[in-house]
Design a protein around this nucleic acid. Structure first.
Length: 737
DNA sequence: GCTTAGACTTGGAATAATATTT
DNA sequence: AAATATTATTCCAAGTCTAAGC
């Protein structure tokens, strides 16, 4: 493995946290030499001195109110302060019981914040919760590592880290050299000196014994009986119950992520320089709790204490800790359906709607500024054009220890190519290292400007060298209060969606309408470049669906033949829905389907037989006769059939013409629906609809559409989304974004 | 003024739950 | 009833943006 390309850590530094090393290098680098031609990326580190064991009790956040601070934690936690805090504690259980499973405002005692005003500078007045849930302590399993063909016994710490890697053996992560290097460095740093001497190369490590052991555990778990599984589930639920809700201003609301992230290997996306680094176990001593001043402080796990307790009601988080890989803060927030999240969601969409009233003026002005004499103005105008037209993200600067991805303001010359006919080709990695590739014909002036901005620059220099997200946003806010780059994305997404929905066939079936809805959704997802990897089973499920449709068509064809046997064809002169032959149902297909159908029927009969034998052994005889009569009704030999053979009389349904006609129509309907579903799915294979649905499209558009077209909202929003967007439920059918 | 800590939204993948097929 | 496919939920990484702090 590549020990060669590892300049960052030499052996002498082995025991110093990586973050420290990087920080040191960085400051050295900035002071002295280094490239830094034009302000390239921010020389980041989110550092923080990170004094590991001598944890200083950290300064209080601005609003944290003193009061309890001088009392030792231990006495606070033991000393039940129950009575002091307003009722909530006792009430909790009852409330939970009654509101548990009301999906959609069945209960009316719910807090409908959207029916009144709300102030959101102060997020809460009382806040009570149970803190966070820690993952279980590590339990060693004793499965050894094989190194260079020999067994190596690992101690618990070593084994845990090795296990992290073993778990990922089947993933693509282990194909990533950066990941491997970071992991191996981390692994070696926990090895005992004896093992460290021995374990020198990752390629010689064989984790398969552990992998197989984990696999075995998984299988065992899977093979447990239903009852055992249920019991475990119940126990888990009981453990977690108290963490799942919080009481905010006396109301019980759901908490989102109350679980502390378990230790593991950092799964950075794309070419993240830290991919594979060890994410250390978080302890109560790392966790700060934010809670109402008079509320009971949750008990930390036995023998432990919290890092800090604060009472900051200007923020919404309940707990925080620092991620050990990137030194970034992590938070526990309320769930998406909570009032706090709902309010800010509502605000977000209202802000985007506000832009509607400004956008024409802004665009007009911007168009002028594209030709401004000032270079900065021209850059800004061009960038804004991209943000507005192509829904690009703002593009903050990124650090050296992050994956190299860009957004609008951080685009570099290498990311765009200027082609003929005012065409620009965008090709860069955006958020999550998702590729943005787009070939667009742009206004002449845009093309001209981009050409100008590229001129004389190297490919790795910034395209908009005079622009930053901060300056752009500052300018935007001067045009409209609270306007920032991301508002454009929200605005354009919602607006596009509403426009696209106008293609809904108002006299279509529900399935057709849903297809139109999903198509509109998909247009937005494409605009926002929300991509996903093609599901593994896409091809198979596609052909399967096609076959299914063909089978239905074949059955319809059979019914039609039967009908035309009974009734003169001319009766249906003006009824193409009855007489029309399916275009893709040729002889071969018919032959194939015929056989399939027979096989299917045979199988059914077989099963029926088995069942009969099992259940009614005494009346077996008489039934069997029936079955046999059925099964030998048609015998087929060769799949090669000529039309003549196909049309020869077949097993009939013996239904009346009226019934046959009706059956044909239902079948036709089913076929249509399936075809729609198929198209929908195929068009969707690389597009992720969920992100735009959850974050960009104003839910009121969907609720209004649902009412206007009488499509049940359940077909559009799953339970989670309905809960998240309950504030939008009551819009009028004619509501407009 | 500039940098960056901090808080919050946005994002695709992984995993769990459920539905469907065998 | 087990295997598989599909959908919903959870996970946690990676953005945006504000304001604290110099």
């Amino acid at each position: 493995m590549s020990t060669k390309d590892t300049p960052s850590v030499d052996s002498s530094e082995e025991d110093i946290p990586l973050s420290k090393i990087i920080k040191r290098r960085k400051s050295k680098g900035v002071d002295s030499d280094e490239d830094f031609t034009i302000r390239r990326r921010r020389s980041t580190p989110r550092k923080k001195a990170n004094i590991k064991e001598t944890k200083k009790p950290k300064a209080k956040t601005k609003n944290s109110v003193e009061s309890d601070d001088d009392i030792p934690l231990s006495s606070l936690t033991k000393n039940k302060m129950n009575n002091k805090n307003e009722s909530t504690n006792a009430k909790t259980k009852e409330d939970k019981g009654e509101q548990s499973e009301n999906d959609n405002g069945g209960e009316n005692n719910e807090y409908k914040w959207w029916e009144g005003d709300f102030d959101d500078s102060i997020k809460w007045t009382t806040l009570e919760h149970s803190g966070v849930l820690f993952p279980p302590e590590y339990e060693p399993h004793g499965v050894p590592l094989k190194y260079d063909g020999e067994m190596v016994k690992l101690n618990a710490e070593e084994e845990e880290i090795a296990g992290f890697y073993a778990h990922m053996l089947e993933t693509d992560y282990v194909k990533n050299p950066i990941f491997n290097k970071n992991f191996f460095d981390g692994f070696r740093s926990v090895l005992t000196s004896e093992n460290k001497k021995r374990i020198l190369k990752l390629e010689k490590c064989d984790f398969t014994l552990m992998y197989e052991y984990f696999q075995k555990l998984r299988d065992e778990k899977k093979n447990m009986t239903k009852e055992e599984k249920e019991k475990i589930k119940q126990e888990k639920l009981k453990m977690e119950e108290k963490y799942m809700t919080a009481s905010i201003d006396g109301r019980i609301e759901k908490v989102g992520n109350f679980r502390i992230e378990p230790p593991g290997l950092f799964r950075g996306r794309g070419k993240h320089p830290k991919a594979g680094c060890i994410k250390k176990r978080i302890r109560p001593e790392d966790v700060t709790i934010n809670i109402g001043k008079t509320c009971k402080i949750p008990d930390p796990p036995a023998g432990h204490s919290w890092r800090d307790i604060i009472h900051n009601n200007q923020v919404t988080w309940l707990a925080t800790w620092e991620d050990t890989v990137n030194m970034t803060p992590k938070y526990v927030f309320l769930a998406a359906g909570s009032s706090l999240k709902g309010q800010s969601d509502f605000k977000k969409f209202e802000k985007a709607r506000e832009l509607k009233d400004y956008v024409l003026d802004i665009r007009r002005k911007n168009t002028e500024e594209l030709r401004d004499s000032d270079l900065l103005t021209r850059q800004r105008a061009t960038a804004l054009w991209l943000i507005d037209k192509l829904a690009l993200r703002a593009g903050n600067e990124k650090g050296e220890d992050e994956a190299d991805t860009v957004g609008c303001c951080s685009l570099r010359c290498e990311h765009i190519e200027l082609a003929e006919n005012n065409t620009v080709i965008f090709d860069f990695l955006g958020k999550d290292s998702i590729r943005y590739y787009n070939q667009v014909e742009v206004d002449k002036i845009i093309h001209k400007n981009l050409k100008e901005f590229k001129k004389g620059k190297k490919k790795d220099e910034p395209l908009f060298n005079l622009l930053t997200t901060a300056s752009l946003n500052k300018y935007l806010t001067s045009l409209m209060p609270g306007l920032t780059a991301k508002v454009f994305r929200t605005f354009n997404a919602s607006f596009t969606f509403q426009e696209e929905l106008k293609n809904t066939p108002s006299d279509g079936t529900v399935a057709e309408k849903i297809l139109a809805y999903n198509r509109a959704n998909r247009q937005v997802a494409i605009l926002c470049n929300h991509q996903r990897s093609i599901p593994k089973s896409h091809d198979t499920s596609m052909t399967k669906l096609k076959e299914k449709i063909l089978m239905l068509k074949y059955e319809k064809y059979l019914l039609r033949l039967e009908l035309l046997d009974l009734v003169e064809e001319k009766t249906f002169k003006n009824r193409p829905e009855i007489t029309e032959m399916e275009s893709d149902l040729d002889d071969d297909v018919i032959a194939r389907k015929k056989i399939e159908k027979e096989e299917l029927e045979l199988k059914k009969i077989e099963q029926k037989k088995i069942k009969l034998e099992q259940t009614k052994s005494e009346s077996q005889e008489s039934k069997k006769v029936d079955v046999e009569k059925d099964s030998n009704s048609d015998e087929e030999s060769s799949p090669k059939r000529k039309k003549k053979d196909l049309e020869e009389p077949r097993k009939k349904t013996k239904l009346s013409p009226e019934r046959l006609e009706k059956k044909i129509l239902t079948l036709k309907n089913r076929i249509e629906n399936m075809k729609l579903a198929l198209t929908d799915r195929d068009e969707n294979k690389t597009t992720a609809l969920s992100t735009s649905k959850t974050n960009y499209i104003d839910p009121r558009i969907s609720f209004a559409w649902s009412k206007l077209h009488s499509v049940p909202i359940e077909k559009l929003f799953n339970k989670g989304l309905r809960d998240k967007f309950k504030w939008a439920t009551s819009v009028d059918a004619n509501w407009s974004f």
